[in-house]
Design a protein around this nucleic acid. Structure first.
Length: 429
RNA sequence: GGAGGGAUGGCAGAGCGGCUGAAUGCACUGGUCUUGAAAACCAGCAAGGGUUAAUACCCUUCUAGGGUUCAAAUCCCUAUCCCUCCA
């Protein structure tokens, strides 16, 4: 959520910043509501003040043994007036909130202009796409040779699910373990195990709600819609991990907070009809190792670089060629101020594909989360900055390993760092 | 399945219709003392919001949502979470 103070004082700056990401809103409407709000709020608070002082004098008169009847008559019609003023104010404030909650974050100044992923800019590249003296297969053909099974998954659940058995399943697990260990042991993250079903407050905190409910799987505790608070399957580990610190005032000495968690992610993929229908790239359920950091405002952009570096370290250790791109304003996610995508080379597609997305949210999430620290200089609570990145998406990493480390006979070379996790297996054949 | 108890500031914990935005302790900040530190003593210290150029003033908040009342942390109802006991 953007700062309402800023929207009040400098709405033009917000407008031009959001224009960069093709988001426009009705300035006049918001200003009108804001003016109404001001009048209404002042009136309401004056009525409350009147009621408070009157009530106090009744209390005093009663204690002194005086006749309070005239005082009671004087406040007789106050309640009705106050209720009316309050409910009018609530309507206006709800209208303002609805508008503000639907506004995306403003892009950081270093974010390039652009409308779509075609305008993202390559920042760096690591490794060279491999040269193969045989016809490369894609991960579906390779995977099906070794235990990746979409047909069985379709029987159990439907499209966009997968079953893995045998060595592929083990490789999938090994990747997760390797990533977690790497981030905990070498990068200083604290491992976190978190719930996979979360409430609406959590999703509002990180920005998925209210705008993107259609992307989520929603469950109802007692069957019927509406009779209980719904729980949602997490679309990313970012949601539960970041929400661990919702409504807290963090000690300055504990900053930055660094958490890593392995969770499944569930996405409805509404609006993705026909996209990536083949294979593991776009699934309703997939595993991810998620990095989350919470930092002071002045540190957050430096941390975005190191956090992205932590994700890159995994790709390098797994000998996977990739490039790093900075997302243009038009391709930026709703809550993000700046995002780097890591795109891994997939020989089966002859293309770089996203495998990690690392973002700084500035105080956009923190404002919704009421996530703060006490600044010792001002002795006041101040909003923190949140960051997260995939380190990495496990399913897509599996795809990258299959395709990049395939050999002429369809066997898969296991990168050295995984040998221990694979119980000594060096080749899947 | 049944019966109770609880949720209060960063933390612990009093209060149980008006004098309570909230005692007290811890933590924290500043000061005195000290070569320095500790201890001791003194002072300060919840959050969110509004009006204002500012000083200042005002509103809201004691898990959440309703209700009773001129007035609610305090009484009533509902929900959530925690705990204890019985089966």
């Amino acid at each position: 959520m953007l700062s309402k103070k800023q929207l009040r004082n400098d709405i033009e700056a917000v407008e031009s910043a959001l224009k960069k990401r093709n988001f426009s809103f009705d300035i006049n409407q918001l200003n009108d509501l804001e003016n109404k709000r001001k009048i209404n709020q002042v009136e309401t608070q004056e009525l409350q003040n009147l009621r408070n002082t009157q009530s106090k004098s009744i209390g005093k008169a009663k204690a002194a043994g005086e006749d309070i009847k005239p005082l009671l008559d004087a406040v007789a019609d106050l309640g009705g007036k106050l209720d009316k003023a309050k409910s009018e104010l609530l309507v206006i404030q709800t209208q303002i909130d609805d508008i503000v909650m639907a506004m995306p974050n403003t892009p950081h100044e270093s974010v390039p202009e652009g409308n779509s992923e075609d305008d993202n800019i390559e920042v760096s590249k690591w490794g060279e796409p491999g040269q193969y003296d045989f016809e490369v297969k894609d991960h579906v053909d390779l995977g099906e040779m070794h235990g990746l099974d979409f047909e069985t998954a379709a029987k159990i659940s439907g499209a966009r699910f997968s079953v893995m058995t045998g060595k592929i399943a083990r490789l999938h697990r090994a990747l997760t373990q390797f990533m977690l260990d790497q981030h905990v042991e070498n990068n200083g993250y604290t491992e976190a195990y978190v719930p996979y079903l979360v409430n609406a407050e959590s999703l509002t905190g990180t920005g998925q709600l209210p705008k993107f409910e259609a992307d989520l799987f929603k469950t109802h505790l007692h069957g019927e819609e509406g009779d209980a608070k719904p729980l949602y399957l997490i679309p990313t580990g970012e949601v539960p991990i970041t929400n661990m610190v919702r409504d807290t005032i963090v000690k300055e000495s504990d900053l930055p907070l660094k958490f890593v968690g392995h969770t499944p992610s569930f996405r409805s993929e509404a609006g993705a009809y026909g996209r990536d229908t083949r294979g593991l790239i776009r699934q309703h359920q997939f595993e991810k190792v998620e990095l989350v950091q919470v930092a002071k405002a002045e540190d957050s952009y430096q941390i975005l670089e190191t956090l992205t570096g932590h994700a890159e370290g995994i790709l390098q250790a797994l000998e996977l060629p990739y490039r790093k791109v900075i997302l243009c304003a038009g391709d930026l996610g709703f809550s993000a101020a700046k995002t780097y995508d890591l795109e891994v080379w997939l020989p089966g597609q002859s293309a770089y594909r996203e495998i990690s997305s690392c973002s700084c949210f500035e105080d956009f999430q923190a404002r919704r989360l009421q996530l703060r620290y006490k600044n010792p200089e001002t002795n006041k609570p101040e909003l923190l900055h949140t960051l997260n990145g995939s380190g990495l998406a496990v399913g897509r990493t599996l795809v990258a390993i299959l395709e990049n480390h395939q050999q002429a006979d369809g066997s898969i070379r296991i990168p050295d760092v995984l040998h221990n996790y694979m119980g000594g297996i060096t080749v899947i054949n």
